[in-house]
């Protein structure tokens, strides 16, 4: 990862006009065990022959994300610029907030991976609030940054596990934000790519509008 990525101004994406390169940083945020890493793992396992890159994961013994997961890939030339996308996850567990803040630094777009399980309602709310606060610490607004919500684990409904309805999730998490949202199953891959495509498209459009 480029050092410039960490030292750049928070609002401006990393753009090297001389080399005509753009680096786009997308962060998957959300409560622990919500499926952020699974999103990246799905993308990697399904498309690694096309994106020709490696996923970097730093995990604890119990398979939880300790620091972050990192999946970079090149999108090729767009408007004469080489576009490189970097997908990150943050550790979801409450105690790792310092790491979350560090990973958020320089973020261009966000995917909030919410856990659809009924029992996880509070954790979703807490995590979204935490995102709001951490962005604010960088003088950034959750209402301005490109953001997509993903309601993950929808497949568990078929197993009789009580899930929050999409309406309830929308009311809880998206009533003020009013951003694109997708029902998904990261484990199965349902809407994982759709979510990623949406956030990349939104982020690129946002970068373009900032440069105008």
């Amino acid at each position: 990862m480029s050092k410039n990525c960490f030292v750049k101004c928070f609002l401006v994406p990393f753009i090297n006009l001389k080399k005509r390169e753009v680096q786009v940083k997308i962060v998957y945020y959300g409560p622990g065990r919500g499926g952020k890493t699974t999103n990246l793992e799905y993308v990697y396992s399904k498309f690694n022959d096309r994106i020709k890159t490696d996923i970097v994961s730093i995990k604890t013994q119990g398979d939880r994300t300790l620091f972050f997961d990192f999946l970079p890939f090149n999108m090729g030339k767009i408007k004469g610029f080489d576009v490189r996308v970097q997908l990150y996850t943050v550790p979801g567990q409450v105690k790792y907030n310092a790491t979350r803040k560090l990973v958020l630094r320089g973020v261009d777009g966000l995917v909030f991976v919410a856990d659809s399980m009924e029992a996880r309602r509070e954790k979703n709310l807490h995590s979204l609030k935490n995102l709001h606060e951490n962005l604010a610490s960088y003088n950034e607004s959750i209402f301005k940054i490109p953001l997509v919500l993903q309601y993950n684990k929808r497949d568990l409904a078929e197993q009789g596990i009580p899930l929050l309805s999409v309406e309830s999730l929308e009311k809880d998490l998206n009533s003020k934000l009013r951003v694109p949202s997708f029902e998904a199953s990261a484990l199965a891959g349902t809407n994982v790519v759709t979510t990623m495509k949406k956030i990349i498209t939104m982020t690129m459009a946002s970068i373009e509008s900032q440069l105008k």
Partner: peptide
């Protein structure tokens, strides 16, 4: 849910994303 910033960059990005991550007919593994 729509992106308000539609434009040529968006079209180009979408087209490139489709090349890289096109999933036509791919149902979920589960």
């Amino acid at each position: 849910m729509d992106n308000k910033n539609d434009g040529t960059v968006t079209d180009e990005v979408q087209s490139r994303l489709e090349d890289l991550f096109g999933e036509s007919g791919k149902a979920s593994v589960y």
